[in-house]
C-alpha cells in the first residue's frame, strides 16, 4: 500500500481554480521533489493536503496511509503522521517554542494511545535535537518563530519534524532563505528522517538541496498539474536549462 496517493485532485480558492488534476503516489521509503515556477500551485497542494480552510476540493481523492485524508481534520492528519513544513512559518508571540513542542508531541502520543512523555525524558530529547540543528537552547524559550530570522524559522520547522517523526513530511521550500551552512544542517536533519517506513516530499526551487537530499523522483508542477516526472537528473536538467523548453514541450 502506498503512503500517499493523490488522484486527479482539483482545488479552488473562491472562483480561482488552482489545482487542475494532480496525480502523485508516494511510497514508504521514497523521497519526491516537486519543482515548478512561482505561482504554479506547489504551496496550495501542501496546504490542501494539510487541511487548510479556504480551499475547496472540487474533484479527486487523497489516500494517506489507507485513510481518506480529505475527510480528516487538520489535527487528525498531523496525529496520523503527516507533517507540513511551512514556506512561511507564522510567528506566535507569547506561546513558547518549548510549549508548542511539548503540546504537539503529547497530542500525537495521545492519538496513538501513548501516555505523556515525562518532562525529563522530553527535555533530554529536545536538547539533543536543538544541538543537532545547531540552534541555541534560548530558542526554546522564545515565542514560536517570534522574531526569528528566515533561516532560524526553517531550522525550527525541521526541529519539530525530527521530534514528531512523521510518516510523511511535506516540506514547502524549507531550503529557501538558508545560508550555506544552514542548508547543510537542515539537509542532514531531513536525511535523518529518511527511512524505509517514511516518505518525504520536498518542494524546492533549487538543485542545491537535492544534492544533499537525493530524491528518488522529481516532478514539475505547472499551472496546477504535474506536467513531467523523472529521476534526480530532471532537477539537474532544470538547473542547467531552466523551465522554458519543458513548459513548451508540455503545452
Amino acid at each position: 500500500m502506498s503512503l500517499l496517493e493523490i488522484k486527479n485532485l482539483h482545488a479552488n480558492i473562491g472562483d480561482k481554480v488552482i489545482l487542475r488534476g494532480i496525480n502523485l503516489t508516494v511510497n514508504a521509503g521514497e523521497i519526491h521533489a516537486i519543482m515548478g515556477p512561482n505561482g504554479s500551485g506547489k504551496s496550495t497542494l501542501c496546504q490542501v493536503l494539510g487541511g487548510r480552510d479556504g480551499f475547496e476540493v472540487t474533484e479527486g481523492s487523497v489516500q494517506f496511509d489507507g485513510m481518506n485524508l480529505l475527510e480528516m481534520a487538520t489535527e487528525d492528519r498531523a496525529n496520523a503522521g503527516l507533517l507540513l513544513g511551512f514556506q512561511h512559518p507564522v510567528e506566535i508571540p507569547g506561546v513558547k517554542n518549548i510549549y508548542l513542542l511539548k503540546e504537539s508531541l503529547n497530542a500525537q502520543r495521545k492519538a496513538r494511545g501513548l501516555g505523556e512523555l515525562d518532562t525529563f525524558a522530553f527535555m533530554k530529547q529536545v536538547r539533543e535535537l536543538v544541538k543537532s540543528m545547531q540552534m541555541d537552547d534560548a530558542f526554546l524559550h522564545r515565542g514560536v518563530n517570534a522574531g526569528f530570522s528566515g533561516g532560524e524559522k526553517k531550522r525550527n520547522e525541521i526541529l519539530q519534524m525530527l521530534l514528531l517523526q512523521p510518516k510523511l513530511a511535506l516540506l514547502d521550500e524549507t531550503d529557501s532563505g538558508l545560508d550555506i551552512d544552514a542548508l547543510k544542517i537542515v539537509s542532514e536533519g531531513i536525511n535523518r528522517l529518511r527511512g524505509t517506513d517514511r516518505g518525504i516530499v520536498l518542494v524546492t526551487h533549487y538543485q542545491r538541496l537535492l544534492s544533499y537530499v537525493e530524491p528518488d523522483f522529481v516532478h514539475i508542477l505547472y499551472k496546477g498539474q504535474i506536467i513531467k516526472s523523472g529521476d534526480k537528473s530532471l532537477a539537474l536538467q532544470l538547473e542547467a536549462e531552466g523551465y522554458e523548453d519543458i513548459l513548451k514541450a508540455a503545452s
Binding site: 487538520t74 489535527e75 496525529n79 508548542l100
Partner: peptide, 29 residues
C-alpha cells in the same frame, strides 16, 4: 494583537485541536 487563522492553522497542523490552540495563545498572553 489579533489571533490569526494562520496561527491557529499552524498549531493545528502540529496535532493540536483548535480549542487548545486558542488556549495556548490566550494563556501565553
Amino acid at each position: 494583537t489579533k489571533v490569526s487563522d494562520d496561527q491557529i492553522f499552524y498549531l493545528k497542523s502540529r496535532g493540536i485541536t483548535e480549542e487548545n490552540a486558542t488556549n495556548m495563545i490566550v494563556n501565553g498572553f
